[in-house]
């Protein structure tokens, strides 16, 4: 029986990643990672990944690896007032801070990297932000969301077990604790959500009614935080053939929990991005989204993925 050996030195990294720092006029900075394929082949396109709330850039390592392995340049960033290396503390995060961060990165990509049009992939809370940004910025060619929030208030009520948005400011607790560990100041978040219209589910629908770009939304059928029907209502699939929902059986909100499901999702997501990249901007029609997405050309191995996760974890600061 032939023996097929692979030594560590032969394990190819799926991705080359460089770090950039976007310095804002007020002294704050946003850290951005740029990952690109190892091959010299022409790029298929460029994608920006927005992490979920509390997510780190390296938690998107597998998504970046799948996309890079199939010819995409991938940018990731850590929003302001978030958990990673960008300025600010997670406790001060607001939806508008998240929106400001995404806008700043998109402007920086156009200004510094010449990336005028691109796809955006947003996870969980950042998807709610991306829906608004995509409805207002014409240069976003397509949007892919994963367990994306559409009804902020309902999701937060499920996460915290209390509808804090119903409380008068004076009655809000100073902080709430997310995932048993992360303290978030409530007054700033709630005030921003009320004043900037992030709360009502109807707002998401209105924003998406304005949007003309193709959207693929991945939802998890056992998600306790983002309900299937909420996403269906926001996407209005019956009237938007350029949109698609991909429903993952057996998964909760944490899509990475079960690697079999995560692998299936990453295959589908990468295929979706490959298909969406082929859609001609401004000519999105019912036929623009094929009944099934193309198969991957290359799939990163376990060795590649763990090598990348470890390398990116080392790169990250606490």
């Amino acid at each position: 029986m032939p023996r097929d050996e692979k030594s560590e030195s032969e394990i190819p990294a799926a991705v080359t990643t460089e770090e950039s720092v976007l310095r804002l006029d007020d002294g704050r900075q946003i850290v951005i990672w740029h990952s690109r394929p190892q091959s010299e082949a022409p790029l298929r396109g460029t994608v920006l990944l927005a992490p979920g709330f509390c997510g780190r850039m390296y938690s998107l390592a597998a998504t970046a690896a799948y996309l890079c392995a199939n010819g995409f340049a991938v940018y990731r960033y850590d929003p302001l007032d978030h958990r990673g290396p960008s300025s600010g503390e997670l406790a001060d995060f607001t939806m508008s801070t998240g929106r400001f961060s995404m806008d700043q990165v998109l402007d920086w990509l156009a200004r510094e990297r010449g990336v005028e049009s691109l796809g955006v992939i947003a996870t969980s809370l950042s998807a709610r932000i991306a829906y608004r940004v995509a409805s207002e910025r014409a240069k976003i060619r397509y949007l892919v969301t994963a367990v994306g929030v559409t009804d902020l208030r309902a999701t937060l009520t499920r996460v915290f077990g209390v509808d804090h948005m119903a409380s008068p400011p004076a009655e809000l607790p100073p902080t709430v604790v997310f995932e048993d560990r992360h303290h978030i100041r409530t007054l700033g978040f709630a005030t921003d959500a009320h004043e900037r219209g992030w709360n009502p589910a109807a707002t998401t629908r209105v924003e998406l009614d304005r949007a003309t770009l193709p959207i693929v939304a991945f939802i998890a059928r056992d998600d306790d935080w983002v309900l299937e029907r909420e996403v269906e209502e926001a996407l209005d699939l019956a009237n938007h053939p350029e949109r698609r929902m991909c429903k993952l059986e057996g998964s909760g909100h944490n899509l990475a929990k079960n690697p079999r499901i995560a692998q299936a999702m990453l295959r589908e997501l990468t295929g979706a991005v490959m298909a969406l990249e082929n859609c001609t901007s401004g000519e999105v029609q019912r036929a623009a989204l094929p009944p099934s997405f193309p198969a991957l050309e290359r799939e990163p191995t376990f060795e590649m993925l763990t090598t990348q996760v470890i390398a990116e974890r080392r790169r990250s600061t606490r």
Binding site: A238, C246, K247, E249, R260, A264
Partner: peptide, 23 residues
């Protein structure tokens, strides 16, 4: 039905992974 147009179901569940990676 037509209402399901634009929906894809992805089912990668397995019993062994469901147990090992259970919440």
């Amino acid at each position: 039905a037509a209402a399901d147009a634009g929906v894809r179901i992805i089912d990668a569940r397995t019993a062994i992974d469901g147990l090992i990676f259970a919440e």
